[in-house]
Design a protein around this nucleic acid. Structure first.
Lengths: 340, 340
DNA sequence: CCCCGAAGTGTAAACGCTTCCAGTCCTAAG
DNA sequence: CTTAGGACTGGAAGCGTTTACACTTCGGGG
């Protein structure tokens, strides 16, 4: 394998100068830089990142920990982060800890501690004291997406606020009988996002003087399938049917739409449905939603991290609120008079 | 940071012995092994993988290149591979080359050549001669999933065969007016899977003496959204409507179902629909499909690769056919008499 | 009782870079 | 005409492991 030595030889320079020329750090004359570059190109030389990392302490690699790769939000975050990292010449190491609790353990006990990553992005993960401690111990910047992460920086959306906004959208259309599909607390490793969104819903309802009926508050696991089942129950068993459903995620809203169709309910005539996310499928289904730009959140996390890396790996804990946008489509409308 | 030296000191052993003890290679007395282990544990010592990689040439890291993270098949492969790798103590570096052609370039020109990975999994990627050359040049085993990869091992399903099987399922129910939603050739980087499935469809139709009508052959980009649009066209514009649709993927079948509902078509009464994949959503929608166990394919690729890594990084090119299974649900049925 | 091989251990040389340090050259200020 | 200081360069010391090699010890066959 051709190493930096070969390049140096071919370029008639010292190894040190070639290293400086190629990395762009330090002073190198334009001539030398050019010579080093062409020599490297001619030899097809590519830096060995292990050697480089060992010597410099920088890995050019970021770890991304997600609870699942199937749910839309996580895919979108991965997509956004991946593109931003690629652009910056960084690798992305993916840790999907969905499968087994043991996987989560080994990720935090071994994988992340091996100094293979310069920084860590944790998505929708409620980390334990111990886990945070360990991450901080390796002295790597961490940013959390989608939830609080004590001692770390976070990119988040105003969960309570958008739930409020979403509910108000329905209330504003004239709905008063609104059901809410919330997430399962346990699903996301005790992550309390579902609760936050639910409280926004409740606040909006209370402010509007509308009762929150317990039988119209069901939970699902954030998937289409889960919400489909939950919505069927909701639509079938309630003595009275809501005129609108606000789901805590687009996927759950989609599940609701599918369930509604099973009951022969027309959307939005018989039932208004809205979600939160900005799921691609929303366009097709005409789903009213609050777009949270998940891809952008992934990219933002990367930017934050890269900044910290260039700043000596220190990252001031900060809370950044990512903008969201109400997207009104055809799944919500004024309730039809006479609808039970 | 505590290094192997500290462990050696604490255990009263030499660095070499500690290394051997911890890695499990070479002869170490049980006593020494135990002492090394406890010392390491007490110090919270974790190997520096960069140093380790540099010295040994093994990175304990596998690169996974995918054309997208959103489509179900890729997510599932990632999930399967990720779990298998985690289990084996390997990291997974994800390269999503969807965003931009330049990303693809840099992945193949830089990222994969930096000796950061022991092996590469390429999913549904038609690699160019040049790209394959480069990969082989770094002397890393490669396995392709979902398509041919000259000179590399592949895990694949019998695309033509399952398309045949799927079509025969519909024919067996009595359908003769069958439409096919195929993939766009260009979408998957010139990957010719769509064509293979289409030819299976055509063969089955021809064998059964049923005409393949060009107007009932539409293409989409393998997404729900894309197929939804395509299916709307298919169902709207045809002078005569097919009684069954065979989509080249579950996502496209789902798009078809959504479109059919827009037209007030009952499934399967007015239209039978089937796909290929084993998408999670299929259960909810009652979608008849051919399950191709994408997760299993990801895991199988990892097994193959790990075997090669332990075999001195040599991997005999081989073609492994992954088993598939016809799953009959409620989206396909005998055509109603009198259906146009 | 000797010799040989296997088992266990330590020393030290890589692995392929980065970067500190010291040195040379040149420019521009004093 | 000095000389301080900046620009540029090369030598060499790491970075934290693995592993080839050499060595000791020990048990058993001849």
């Amino acid at each position: 394998m051709t190493g930096i030595k070969d390049v140096a030889e071919r370029a008639g320079l010292s190894v040190a100068t070639v290293s400086r020329a190629l990395s762009g750090k330090g002073n190198v004359s334009p001539t030398s830089r050019e010579r080093a570059r062409t020599a490297a190109a001619e030899l097809g030389f590519v830096l060995s990142y292990h050697a480089s990392s060992l010597a410099s302490g920088r890995t050019h690699n970021v770890g991304l920990v997600v609870p699942s790769v199937h749910r839309w939000f996580f895919s979108a975050v991965i997509e956004g982060a991946s593109a931003a990292l690629l652009e910056a010449g960084y690798d992305l190491t993916l840790y999907n800890i969905a499968e087994h609790p043991a996987h989560r353990q080994s990720v935090f006990n071994d994988f992340l501690l091996r100094k293979r990553v310069d920084a860590v992005i944790a998505v929708s993960l409620e980390l334990s004291e111990d886990e945070i401690q360990k991450l901080h111990a390796v002295h790597r910047p961490i940013v959390g997406i989608g939830g609080p992460l004590p001692g770390a920086s976070t990119i988040r959306i105003d969960d309570s606020g958008i739930a409020l906004k979403a509910t108000n959208h329905l209330l504003g259309l004239g709905h008063t009988k609104i059901a809410h599909i919330t997430g399962l607390e346990a699903y996301d490793q005790d992550f309390h996002l579902p609760g936050t969104r639910r409280s926004g819903f409740e606040k909006a309802m209370n402010d509007a003087g509308c009762p929150v009926r317990p039988e119209w508050m069901v939970s699902a696991d954030f998937t289409i399938e889960g919400a489909y089942a939950a919505a069927r129950q909701l639509l079938a068993s309630a003595p009275e049917r809501p005129t609108a459903v606000f789901a805590a995620s687009d996927e759950m809203a989609i599940g609701t739409i599918l369930a509604a169709r099973d009951f022969g309910l027309r959307i939005p005539d018989d039932l208004s449905v809205m979600g939160i996310d900005g799921h691609d499928l929303g366009k097709v289904l005409g789903l009213t939603t609050i777009d949270q730009d998940a891809k952008g959140q992934g990219a933002a996390a990367v930017r934050t991290l890269l900044g910290a890396i260039n700043n000596g790996l220190v990252l001031e804990p900060a809370d950044t609120e990512h903008p969201t946008k109400l997207v009104v489509r055809t799944s919500t409308a004024v309730p039809k008079p006479g609808t039970s």
